[in-house]
Design a protein around this nucleic acid. Structure first.
Lengths: 391, 391
DNA sequence: GCGTTAACTCAACTTTCTTGAGTGTTCAAG
DNA sequence: CTTGAACACTCAAGAAAGTTGAGTTAACGC
């Protein structure tokens, strides 16, 4: 039973340099600003090698000098930082009714974000819309296309024909061909495709509460509920890109089995409130319901927290993450409320006395979470050494 | 919130060579025997580079020539294969009542296996026993110590003080200090520590039904139930090494929530049978009960299969593995029976028409599964390129 | 038979890293 | 105030690994 060997790249001078460059960028990004010697120690390279690489990066416009810092004895340190306009990333979130786009700079600051309603969810329409948005965004911001390092695309999973197909708010026509390749050809850019939860998780790791974390889980409240997993600094995609479909597992709430997604998701809260005659159209409606202490909403929140507690037990015991982050298209207030009410399972490997992070944290939320996450995929790539890259 | 940056190695000539060597070994191992040009294509190196590396590996005794193969036109291919006695790995499984050890060669063939009862489960006693077994094994097989590439150690988790502590058949005194370091110092060898499930999974990947798979899950029947996860060819350890503690999650059987481990584990079957007046002492007893079609055993098997079906739904939807493997200290017959009776969840990302592997497979079983898995950890290391190593 | 195909080797070249000596700045001890 | 240690960084030489392109050998097919 011989399967194809994943193309694991051998190292040659060119690839070594590229690898080390990214290592240096990564080290600088991690601490904000750094000097040559410091980077050398962190990377296991000689200071001379680091010096040469930094000189390269300065020429390429990826770094800026940040003045000197005299730290104790010795020659003061010439510091360097990532140059924000050294590169840009385009983030795209495709939903059945609209396409969201964002342009972010090298340090992750969004320059523009945009929502384009979709006339129809056909493949051609989507490609056309994304393409047009890219051009428009570049024109508006005067960012040259060659400064774009790539595009991240968030699409609703699952990918391919699976047992969950048909149950999702799906996009027709994407089950044939590799979406990444299709977009890459159309946009003429390196493209990275992920599901919303993984993208949001990577964004959190690049610029959110998960900065510096290498092992964590992210529960993403979207239409349904998704689980983003980061292991060893890499998003876990699974064999076919469908890892993290946590919404359809069965958990126990008040002794009764329920589908997780039916208890904790945007659809779930809408359905629950509709059952009590309350109509919510969007996230803002939820916020006002919450501030007016709507009884039905509070009932739902409590029940969601109970379901979440079961899910937490599974996530923690299966992944042993540093922390679990809650985020997505849900108002902060509600997330905070749920977090406060979620019982942290006693019988969990995460129930340890020497924790550095809370077991449950709130991440970035809001409508653009996944879109910015899409852009973060590109940034993540730019700061990840390439030799023997775990994809 | 700045955390310590994982020491990601920069590439220098020495590390590049080591990386490429392992890449070549890996490519050869993957296909059994291979020629230079073939390896060059697979690794992205030039044939000249591969030639030089192979010449090195021949000198080091890690490869043997395997004669020529004339494949179509052109000069016949000089083939190479891994030299079985090119290196050895020592595997250790520590249990509260005994220590199991095994010596395997570079291709994974076990030379000797041994069980040493433990007078007491104290740390010092264990270290002493392992050390003595290593010496004895080397003496018996006339393998020089410098041919040993390392030792793999399997210890019952969870590691550290967690919410599951105290519920396991535990070893006292290992919560302080890093077990890997302690063993490494004592044995004077590179040491890799894992839990039983992950080790068994790696063994399956090196020489079992998971050969060539990079993303799969392994359910290990031990005292309890453990989940080994392989993602992108690497074992998932979690932030604190405790990933895969699936035994304590709650699943639903016949509409009622139960702890998974209470339904599917060696302890569970023993308890169930004891409740009906049947005493089983070991794996052989189970085999004979099965061949005599014991009614109580069959009831347990059905119930275990139902619990497993719930677990499968969780594993598949969270990891999207290529397959899920069942193995461990359970007779083949019983595993096969359970697999046959386990309902494959419909609503799963793994329920896809284009599958190459069954959703549920039986892996290696038997008493030495984890011990050989421990040795496989060392082999895995030897065939894994080191630059930017994912640990 | 003879040209084509393909694997492999040899020798020259390139890239990148490391090493060790040297420069400049800061701090602290005498 | 002087002197020396500590530290960051640069320069130039050297080493290690990979690549390139020409040349050799062997099998196949027309």
């Amino acid at each position: 039973m011989v399967t194809s060997l994943k193309p694991q790249l051998g190292a040659n001078p060119e690839r070594v340099r590229s690898h080390n460059k990214q290592l240096v960028l990564r080290a600088i990004r991690h601490v904000g600003t750094a000097g040559r010697a410091e980077i050398a120690r962190a990377s296991g390279l000689s200071t001379q090698a680091v010096s040469n690489i930094i000189s390269d990066l300065l020429n390429e416009g990826l770094l800026v000098e940040q003045g000197v810092r005299s730290a104790g004895r010795g020659l003061p340190v010439q510091q360097y930082a990532i140059k924000p306009d050294g590169g840009y990333a385009f983030g795209v979130e495709v939903r059945p009714t609209a396409v969201f786009t964002a342009l972010v700079d090298l340090v992750g600051t969004p320059l523009v974000t945009h929502r384009t309603p979709l006339a129809d969810p056909q493949k051609a329409t989507i490609l056309e819309t994304v393409c047009a948005q890219l051009d428009e965004t570049l024109a508006k911001t005067h960012v040259p296309k060659n400064a774009l390092m790539g595009a991240g695309i968030v699409m609703p999973g699952p990918f391919g024909d699976t047992g969950l197909t048909g149950t999702e708010s799906e996009l027709p026509g994407w089950n044939t061909g590799d979406p990444a390749e299709i977009f890459a050809n159309r946009l003429d850019l390196p493209v990275f495709v992920e599901n919303d939860a993984n993208a949001a998780a990577m964004a959190e790791r690049m610029n959110g509460v998960a900065r510096g974390l290498d092992d964590f889980a992210y529960l993403y409240f979207g239409q349904g509920l998704g689980l983003g997993l980061v292991q060893n600094g890499q998003a876990v995609q699974g064999a076919f890109g469908n890892a993290g479909e946590i919404g359809h597992i069965t958990v126990v709430v008040q002794g009764r089995p329920v589908e997780l997604e039916s208890a904790t998701s945007r659809l779930s809260v809408q359905a629950h409130l509709a059952g009590h005659g309350v109509t919510v159209m969007n996230v803002d409606d939820l916020t006002s319901l919450y501030s007016s202490a709507n009884r039905h909403l509070f009932v739902w929140l409590d029940q969601a927290a109970q379901a979440l507690s079961s899910a937490l037990s599974i996530i923690e015991n299966l992944f042993d993450p540093q922390t679990v982050i809650l985020g997505g298209a849900m108002p902060d207030d509600l997330l905070d409320h749920i977090i406060a009410r979620t019982a942290l399972p006693e019988r969990s490997v995460s129930n340890r006395p020497d924790r550095k992070y809370p077991r449950l944290m709130r991440g970035t939320s809001g409508r653009m979470t996944a879109t910015l996450g899409a852009a973060a995929l590109v940034l993540h790539q730019a700061f990840t050494p390439t030799i023997a890259a775990a994809r």
